[in-house]
Amino acid sequence: MMTTQTGSLEKPVDVASPAATGSRLQAIARGEAFSPAIHAELEREQSVLDVDDFNLWYGAAQALHNINMKVPAGKVTSMIGPSGCGKSTLLRSVNRLNDLIDCVRVKGDMRINGQTIYHKSVDVIELRKRMGMVFQKSNPFPMSIYENVVYPLRIDGERNKAVLDEVCERSLRGAALWNEVKDRLQESALGMSGGQQQRLCIARAISAEPEVLLMDEPCSALDPIATNHIEDLIHELKGEYTILIVTHNMQQAARVSDYTAFMYLGRLIEYGPTATLFQKPILRETLDYVTGRFG
């Protein structure tokens, strides 16, 4: 049951020794190479997104080191790790949002359904249309609720009212928002509550039928009730959409996700089924982190 990715392990993994934990983290901090522990269950999953030897630098500082991971189709995959571990950077690399930052440089590649993401020939705009993204802070546009939801279609030049109406209703229903806003679709989206705004952003993200839904700490700015709503929504969206979610909250990762990746200092440390990772992880460090002993 406990296996590691074939041939990528350079050092034997020592689960038992606490001293080893410290030394391994120190080794990572020193910049030594590290091979992540990938659980065998992932081998059996069909992947939508593949990350191949991905490295990323902000100027001279390397933020991601040799990330290799698969995101299984139709499942919720969460990424956890202490602040600054690179999980958000990795997420934003998937739809190349990091291109907007001048000093970012990457090496390696990602593939979405087999098609490369990082290549000169790739049209970034077309690429982003295949993904939806939900941000940490809800960012509804300064326009009506309706226009917010159909924004991805509008920029595609869709003018057919029937199509737009249909997409709007489907997306809002998908985001469990339809019943609350169906009577005020033409009102400004900025008049909604914080939780509603975040669900509106989810509706917008799924309106173009994305192949992957990227969520960057979608609940961190919300109160517990709104958080519950969003988590329920993630459960409902599961199966229909592949979701990659970054979260700071380990309970949330445990509640919503099927698979969890643990990252530390720009490296993938351990990646496996959520239940296993939280209860019986391969690595001592993972256990320490999920039980709150460090991080």
Partner: peptide, 14 residues
């Protein structure tokens, strides 16, 4: 806010 621009870019806007 840059969050708005990013939101728009993430939707595939030029």
């Amino acid at each position: 806010p840059s969050s708005m621009r990013e939101g728009s870019y993430a939707c595939g806007a030029s």
